[in-house]
């Protein structure tokens, strides 16, 4: 649950989103829209516990983050998978398979061969098996986001936050993303058929209209909850029309 004002990571003293009153229920599929630079990435980083809000209360899985010690905070953070925008912030000196193996090896304290099976399983589910030994820099930009998703899945997150994952994608890739994320939400084999809560931040609502269940906007530095799909039609916010790429009358 978030009831906070979110700060920008480059200017932590000044809020970029005011009045975020947002509760995510288990199994939800949220789509949060906002124009470029509106603070979507900072919202997700704050939701994941990487940034602290300027003010307000941030509860993650029922626990107020400000009251947790470092160990507890890391434990809670591991329950959240964050897929960064801008090519996923992959570790460029490691291969794709090593990118996936790193969090597993670190938290299980084991060598890479011991997690090979799990890494191969995730790579297979995400369609990346053929490029396991390549470095992130050598694969297509749109596939790097998919590698970031695969890396986030290694820790079997209960909540998955994705920052504009289909921005660089062609229609085929976009379809894959939407089907895969819908599958995760409904219970996918890669996460042992467990329902995963999904939050997608985007600057284009259109691809997500079919998959998203709940919608919200960041408009003029304010948080605006729209609600479920039928509520979209009744929302008069001009930004929504822009994100739906609908013609607005002058």
């Amino acid at each position: 649950m978030l009831d906070v004002s979110i700060a920008a990571s480059h200017a932590p003293e000044f809020p970029v989103i005011e009045g975020v009153d947002w509760t995510v229920q288990a199994g939800d599929f949220w789509v949060v829209g906002g124009s470029s630079g509106s603070g979507k990435s900072d919202l997700l980083a704050t939701a994941a516990g990487l940034l602290r809000p300027v003010r307000g209360v941030h509860r993650l899985f029922g626990q107020e983050l400000i009251q947790l010690d470092e160990e507890e905070l890391i434990r809670q953070r591991r329950r959240v998978g964050l897929v960064f925008g801008n090519e996923g912030r992959l570790f460029n000196q490691l291969s794709i398979a090593e990118n996936l193996a790193l969090p597993l090896c670190y938290h299980r304290n084991c060598a890479a061969p011991e997690v090979r099976d799990r890494v191969e399983e995730i790579l297979e589910h995400t369609g990346l098996s053929a490029m396991a030994n390549r470095t992130p820099a050598s694969v297509n930009r749109s596939l790097r986001s998919r590698v970031a998703l695969a890396r986030a899945l290694t820790l079997q997150p209960e909540l998955l936050l994705l920052d504009n994952p289909v921005r660089e994608s062609d229609p085929t890739q976009r379809r894959w993303w939407i089907e895969f994320l819908s599958g995760l939400c409904a219970g996918h084999a890669v996460l042992s058929r467990r329902h995963t809560t999904i939050v997608v931040a985007t600057d284009d609502f259109r691809p997500w209209l079919g998959a998203g269940e709940k919608f919200a906007l960041i408009a003029r530095n304010r948080w605006l909850t729209i609600g479920t799909r039928p509520a979209l039609a009744g929302c008069a916010e001009p930004l929504l029309r822009e994100l739906l790429h609908e013609e607005t009358s002058p």
Binding site: A48, I74, R89, F91
Partner: peptide, 10 residues
């Protein structure tokens, strides 16, 4: 942003 990625992975 690799440092933030490390933090996000715990």
């Amino acid at each position: 942003g690799e440092v933030e990625a490390l933090e996000a992975l715990g």
